[in-house]
Design a binder for these strands. Structure first.
Lengths: 192, 192
DNA sequence: TCTGCTAACCTAACGCTGTTAGGCTGCAGG
DNA sequence: CCTGCAGCCTAACAGCGTTAGGTTAGCAGA
């Protein structure tokens, strides 16, 4: 696990983010300390501060790194609703692939200019409506991912047992279903 | 701020949760340490472990305490859609009232048996549909609260400026609007 | 080739954290 | 009066993020 060899090439930020992401994935967020990361990349903890201003910056970098794993399907769906759905399903897939990072998922919002929001306005959505739909989809996807991860402990002990069991199961299809409903509803309001 | 006097009555869990919530509200989550809390209630840090098994238990207690601030309007809305909306608007109000706790908001789901979920099944929703709507509303409300709090740093620098500004503004009305859309959509699918 | 600069690393230490072990104290029940 | 124990204490542990300041190796310019 730990690389004991002396380094030959200097560290890079990207290498740090990648290693940090790997540690968090494998051992949990609480295992990701500066010393642990330093050991992983074959360096002492203080040396990391030559590349990063703080641990906070490290965590932000890890989130960005995770987000960079998003892959949009190559022949883009023709229907814009399917495109939106593809984007946010992918968002959720990436979040679900790194369940240890869900506590951090909300700490950073990034919206690429070419990722769909601007596109919405070109479809006839007002700026307000486009943003509201976009925000709602982000909130839903992130919320579902948080509650779906082990981070969340649920107390449903007072519910009837069938409901309790079902409430502990945060399914991907449910998220997609609700995402679709939001898209259709905003679309209907735009048309009406 | 800190109570220097010797205590006359023994500590209670509830007193600890209340004090911890106050510290987190006033000074942020990172200020809430066992030593800080102990000082606040006039005791040494180690003594807290007579009442709590761990800091994690403290944080869970704080979340429960926060959630207990929810108040459902007294003449219950007659329309069940308005009732649902009232519940989740209140949920969001409480979350927004404690912005420093949003990072923890996802760590614990509680669903009272009498808070509406069971009620949905009595209205004709299948167990699955009721749970899916319920989960979606939780996810949306929590997601909005997280992104609306200062916890989230947004990077919208690449967006057109009007969109960027609007994207940094997570409005309550937007959350309510989307909640309402979800309710109506699930209602329509139930009827259809 | 020698000089000097600087990037990239190091050791050591600071004050903080959650947590545990073990001891004191004062009050309630027998 | 004696016992037990709830409720607090002091002291210490290992680990944390971070900083100050020192070393080293390699490259730029003379």
């Amino acid at each position: 696990m730990v690389t004991p060899k002396k380094r030959t090439t200097p560290l890079t930020k990207d290498e740090l983010f990648t290693a940090a992401l790997a540690i968090a994935d494998a051992e949990g967020l609480e295992a990701l300390s500066m010393r642990r990361l330093a050991a992983e990349v074959g360096v002492e903890a203080a040396s990391l501060y030559h590349h990063l201003p703080s641990k906070d910056a490290l965590l932000s970098g890890v989130i960005v790194k995770m987000r960079s794993e998003m892959r949009i399907p190559d022949p883009l769906p023709e229907d814009w609703r399917e495109l939106l759905l593809a984007i946010f399903s992918e968002y959720r897939r990436v979040l679900a692939a790194h369940p240890n990072l869900t506590p951090l998922a909300g700490r950073r919002v990034e919206t690429d200019p070419d990722s769909g929001l601007v596109f919405l306005t070109q479809l006839g959505f007002s700026d307000d409506d486009a943003v509201e739909l976009w925000q709602s989809m982000i909130a839903l996807a992130v919320g579902f991912s948080i509650f779906g991860s082990a981070y969340a402990e649920s107390d449903v002990s007072d519910l009837p047992s069938e409901l309790a069991e079902r409430m502990s199961d945060w399914r991907d299809e449910t998220c997609v279903r609700s995402l679709r409903m939001l898209i259709d509803a905003y679309d209907a309001e735009r048309a009406g």
